[in-house]
């Protein structure tokens, strides 16, 4: 009885699925595969090699610090990194006094611990980077987590920064309505191809590196991508290091466990 009921219930679902499939197939025969301008012209990020890549990766702290200089001199005017605190910069080789000076340039609206009122005061190393007030078109995202919040991570950031180009003539021929709107900029690495951010890194020497490295556009965009990997995952070095020893120990323990298992079962054939 239950099986007859089951077969009927099954056919009810199968019928509904077949009905949906029928109409979707007719639609598919009519429209074909979805053909959008994003599908045709969106590009995956170009590969980018950083020293933090891979299971044994470690930050190149000199590069990360250069990346911070790019952030600070270019990106910071529109983008915040609110999950990062000034004190965190000690990890990429900034001295205590540099951090203090940098923090003091920020204005922090915080509760006075004695009186309880909200007051503006100069930033302290223990403060986080503050939100950036931006009045233009679009909403510049916070960059603290950007390399974890986008497919492709650092490679995406690097490709996006260096990927601005004119709209291909072929695109306009195939999708005449897809002309980049005024105020936006064509960038094939951006999800919908048109990004509000104007090209931020345009000329060599735009940033002055404290270590004297020549600031080419390629150098700046790679460095800032490395910096944004660090802001998103500051504990990456430690994670790799702990993981290496822990997995090594586990392999040792597992081999012992396996040998012990063989011992215990030695008298039982077939295992």
């Amino acid at each position: 009885m239950i099986r007859i009921f089951s077969i009927l219930a099954g056919l009810f679902f199968v019928g509904a699925l077949a009905w949906s499939l029928l109409w979707d197939t007719i639609g598919f025969a009519h429209d074909g595969l979805p053909n959008t301008v994003e599908k045709a012209f969106h590009e995956h990020p170009r590969p980018l090699k950083l020293s933090s890549d891979g299971w044994f990766g470690k930050f190149d702290r000199k590069q990360v610090k250069r990346g911070f200089e790019v952030y600070n001199q270019v990106c910071a005017s529109c983008h915040a990194i609110q999950h990062v605190a000034y004190r965190d910069l000690a990890d990429i080789g900034m001295s205590e006094s540099e951090i203090k000076t940098l923090a003091a340039t920020a204005t922090v609206n915080a509760k006075d611990p004695l009186t309880g009122e909200m007051k503006d005061r100069p930033g302290l190393p223990s403060d986080h980077f503050q939100a950036v007030v931006y009045g233009g078109q679009g909403t510049p995202p916070d960059l603290s987590l950007i390399t974890k919040a986008r497919h492709g991570g650092a490679a995406y950031v690097h490709s996006l920064l260096t990927g601005y180009t004119n709209q291909p003539a072929e695109l306009l021929k195939r999708f005449p309505d897809a002309k980049t709107p005024d105020g936006l900029h064509y960038n094939p690495y951006f999800a919908n191809l048109n990004i509000a951010m104007p090209p931020p890194l345009t000329s060599d020497g735009q940033v002055t590196y404290s270590d004297g490295t020549k600031a080419t556009v390629e150098q700046m965009s790679t460095d800032v991508a490395a910096f944004l990997v660090w802001t998103a995952e500051p504990k990456l070095d430690k994670r790799h290091q702990v993981g290496f020893w822990w997995v090594g120990f586990l392999i040792y323990a597992t081999v012992l466990g396996y040998m012990s298992y063989r011992n215990v079962w030695a008298e039982k054939k077939g295992h």
Binding site: W246, F249, L250, Y252, A253, L256, G257, M259, S260, N263
Partner: peptide, 19 residues
């Protein structure tokens, strides 16, 4: 030898747990 391996395996599990 067998006892040694069993003891070593159990000790390793103990060390792992404490870690």
């Amino acid at each position: 030898r067998r006892d040694f391996i069993n003891i070593a395996a159990v000790s390793a599990a103990g060390v792992g747990g404490l870690t």
